[in-house]
């Protein structure tokens, strides 16, 4: 176990939580009206996408990781 693996695990687990929460909040807010709520919905969508990106980076699907020094 080195630091990079802990970081990745944290990113994956927390990424799942944040993505689920963001999309759930988006689902709950879907029918809200008003300018600020439309903006909030857009922001939540992007937030969820960002969490998924971080999750994928943690899984080493996207992004770059240097070879682990032993």
């Amino acid at each position: 176990m080195n630091a990079a693996i802990i970081e990745r695990l944290g990113a994956v687990i927390a990424g799942i939580v944040v993505a689920v929460v963001a999309f759930y909040a988006l689902y709950k807010d879907w029918n809200s009206t008003g300018v600020e709520n439309q903006v909030f919905k857009l922001m939540l969508l992007l937030l969820g996408i960002g969490a998924i990106l971080a999750l994928l980076a943690g899984l080493n699907v996207v992004g770059f990781a240097p070879p682990v020094k032993s």
Binding site: E7, G10, A11, G15, L53, G58, G63
Partner: peptide, 15 residues
Amino acid sequence: LDVAFAAWNSVVLFG
């Protein structure tokens, strides 16, 4: 850039 730490840090901000 190494993505591992940044991924964790990003999740902190998104959270």
